[in-house]
Every structure is written in C-alpha cells, then in structure tokens.
Design a protein around this nucleic acid. Structure first.
Lengths: 229, 229
DNA sequence: TTTGCGATATATGTCGTACATATGTCCTAT
DNA sequence: ATAGGACATATGTACGACATATATCGCAAA
C-alpha cells in the first residue's frame, strides 16, 4: 500500500487564512485601482486578529503590487505588474525538469505562432537589425559569442512583435531558455532530415515571403530543439 | 509643462529592502529545494533589523511558495508553483486595457503555434471529445451556452497539447479571455473576407489534414478577433 | 486672495517583548 | 528496546510603544 497521497491536510496559519479572506474581500467588493482600503486596525478588529498578523498578510499583497500604502494616507488598490511576480520565481534551480520542459516547449509554440504578428508589424528598421545580427554571426567563430548572438536574434523577433507582454514573457523566461539551451547543446548533434533554415533564411522569408513560409522556416530552424524535447 | 513623469523616487520601506536582500541572498547562495535557511532571529541580527520586519519580508516569500516554515523545524527552500502567483493578479478590473490587449493577442499567438504540438499529441479520444462539443453546439441556440461551448472547445485543444504549463496558462488567463470576449462580442459584426472556419472544419483538418492546414483554419477561425484588436 | 508657517491629529512603519504552540531531543522506567 | 515524560527550541501570534510622514486646520504676512 503506497499511501503516497494520504492526508495532504492543509495546515493554514493564521496569516494564510487572513490572506485568503483579504483575497475574497478584494474580489467581492469589486475594488478598482485607486480605491482606498480600510485601516489596518479596522481590518484587524473585523477579523478578530492582531494588527501584526494583518500586516504580514497585507505585506504579501504589497509584494504582488496589488496594495500600496503610505504613511497617514492609508492603503489603496494598485494596478499590479502581472509578470513581475513570475520573475522572482523563475530560477532554474527551483523548478523541476518537467516544468522547465513545458516552459521551453511553450517558447517554441510562441515563436511559431508569432509569424502572423511579425508580418503585421515588421519595419525596415527591424529587418536591418536582424541583418546586422546575422552579419555579425557570419564573422564570429567563438562558440559562446554565437550562442549569445542566437539569443539576440530571437530576442529581436520578440521585440518586433511590439507586444509588451510577449516581450517580457521572453525576457522573463530567458534563464530557463539559457539553461535548457546549455543542456541541449551538450548532447551530441543528431542527423537532420533536409536542410535547417538559417537566420538568413528567416530574414529573407520575412522580407519577401509569407507568414506561412516563415512559420515553416522557423519550424525547420527550431526542429532540432523539438526533437530533443 | 506636463511633468507627468517627474520624481518616481523609490521610497523603499525597510521591509522592501529586506525583501531585496533576501532575494539576492537566495540567488547568490545557490539554494536548492529542501535546503534549510537560518533562523529568523539570526537573519534579523545579521541585517540589523527587528524580527517583525524580517517576518513580514519572509511572509512574502511564503506566499510565492519559495519558503516554507514549520514550528521548531526552521525554514526551508521550496519549489514554487510558477503560475499560482499570476493567478492572484489576473483580475480584469486590475489590469489596464493595453495589458489585456497584449495578453489576448498572446492567446492568439499560442493557439496558432499550438498546431504542431497538437498533431503530435492527438488521440482518437481527444478527437471524440472535440466532436462531442461540436455536436452539442449544433443543437444549441442559447447565446450564453454557445459562448461557453466555444470556451470548452478551445480548452479541449489546450488539454490536447499535454503541456501542463500551457494548460494552466490558458486556465489562468480565462478571466481575461472572458472579459475580452464579452467586450468584442458587443461590437457589431463586420464583414469577413471568405468563409470563417468552424469548429467542425478544425476537427476535420485535425483528423486528416496537416499542421499547416490546421493553422490556416485556426487563423481563419480567429480572424475576427485579430481584426478587432 | 494667495502664500507661508506652525501646531495637531492620524495611519502606517518599526521595534521589543512576552507568550503560545508544535516538534525535536534526551532521559528514564518498564 | 520501547514508551512516555521533561525539556529545549524555532516559529506563530499578540500587544504596546514610539517613529515618521502627511493631511488638515488656523492664523498671520504679502
């Protein structure tokens, strides 16, 4: 009898419970950014707990960026920065292999799906930037430098999407990408069916090709990673 | 003179500073899950602050799931749940329009990029599930029910990806999707060039088509949203 | 009317202390 | 060897005190 899943009894501390109560309070009361919150002591009284515990719970929301407080002004609801909080957690050391695999796969999904947006937002300036990176690659031999240039190239693509959230998504997951890259590149290279699309191929397609064509080239370009996962 | 951006003077509180110190401490010391942390009092002494302040800062990391503590056992590093923390922040009321637009666009990118994964992971059971939803749609007239079924259909696609992170990404962003959907659907329908691919078309393509074909159909299917954004 | 200064009230920020509670450790009795 | 009790200890909770910034009011000066 394994008993692996016996009793995941949640031992919620007082502060945890307060956090939950505040969470549901914030949702139910339909707070909008700028709205004031009750005073710490009032909340403590209402919940029947000490101000210390309330402050510990509220401190958590301050980290998320949902609550802001100022001396003598009280506390107000703030617009949180969605991605800021993931970033704190994005440490390859703290994530398990499966999750990192999933995240890396998601990167591939996003880069493929990006094609249409890119064709919509491409400009001569961006193309020029990509070409600059590709030209530098042509005259670079150092392995580390090439890896860095590869990252630059893909980063530039994200930039071109013009979508701030996607850009930050990529920047945020960079540590994971780096980690997986370094692991994958240590493995022996395997045979590929047909030619792998290069950065120059991608640029060419972007300049006078189609979204679909670009996607195919990108698929070919990333094929190596697909197989490894 | 607007002066809109004058003085973003960061007024970091003591607790904020402690949080930063702990953050860099955790990164630099290369902690791995399971590793023990110093006692609260030792940290307080080392930083020259009160235990109360340290506890407020640590409480934040407990919310993120990076630190876990038990009576008399001390504190240990834990594997955080990457997406759990975003969920707390994903409230349409708290996000600004631009961010929501970006997030919604990212959804489109992901769903397009999903094609290849789907063809890799599809099974008769999943196809059957999709067909079940589509059949129900055929005999449903209520507008709300149809909206719900549409969500179900796309959710099923995410499920089929088999990527736990992507699945949770979708589930997490659901409130945003719902919100944007409801806003978009209130606008008058515009003329579309050519036929919009239906769910049945997507299923058909999935059964005996190609990833590229599926992507085109999906693009057509989502075209309406693309235009609205 | 506007500006400037000072007194006051107030909510959050920080600290120290005390005690509660759970849990590991050690010691002893059976 | 095992059970059980005594003790030590780190976190959890609470309370009180004071620090600090800031809103508000009153009043005088320009």
């Amino acid at each position: 009898m394994p008993l692996t899943r016996l009793r995941p009894i949640e031992h919620l501390s007082q502060v945890d419970k307060i956090e939950l109560r505040l969470q549901e309070y914030l949702r139910n009361e339909e707070f909008n950014p700028g709205d004031p919150l009750p005073k710490e002591m009032e909340i403590a009284k209402a919940l029947g707990v000490s101000r210390t515990a309330v402050r510990e719970a509220i401190s958590r929301f301050k980290m998320l960026g949902i609550i802001e407080s100022r001396r003598n002004r009280g506390m107000v609801i703030k617009r949180p920065d969605v991605l800021r909080n993931i970033q704190r957690v994005m440490d390859p050391r703290l994530l398990d292999g499966d999750t990192m695999k999933d995240i890396f796969e998601m990167r591939l999904v996003v880069e493929l799906g990006l094609a249409h947006i890119l064709f919509r937002r491409k400009t001569p300036e961006f193309i020029e930037k990509l070409e600059g990176i590709a030209r530098t690659e042509d005259v670079t031999t150092d392995r580390i430098d090439l890896l860095k240039l590869d990252v630059d190239f893909h980063s530039a693509l994200y930039q071109m999407s013009g979508n701030e959230t996607i850009i930050r998504f990529q920047r945020m997951l960079m540590p994971i990408f780096d980690f997986v890259d370094s692991v994958i590149l240590q493995k022996p290279r395997i045979n590929q069916p047909g030619k792998i699309a290069t950065h120059w191929d991608l640029i060419e397609e972007l300049k006078q090709g189609t979204p679909t064509g670009f996607m195919h080239k990108m698929e070919s370009h990333l094929w190596y990673f697909f197989e490894k996962i």
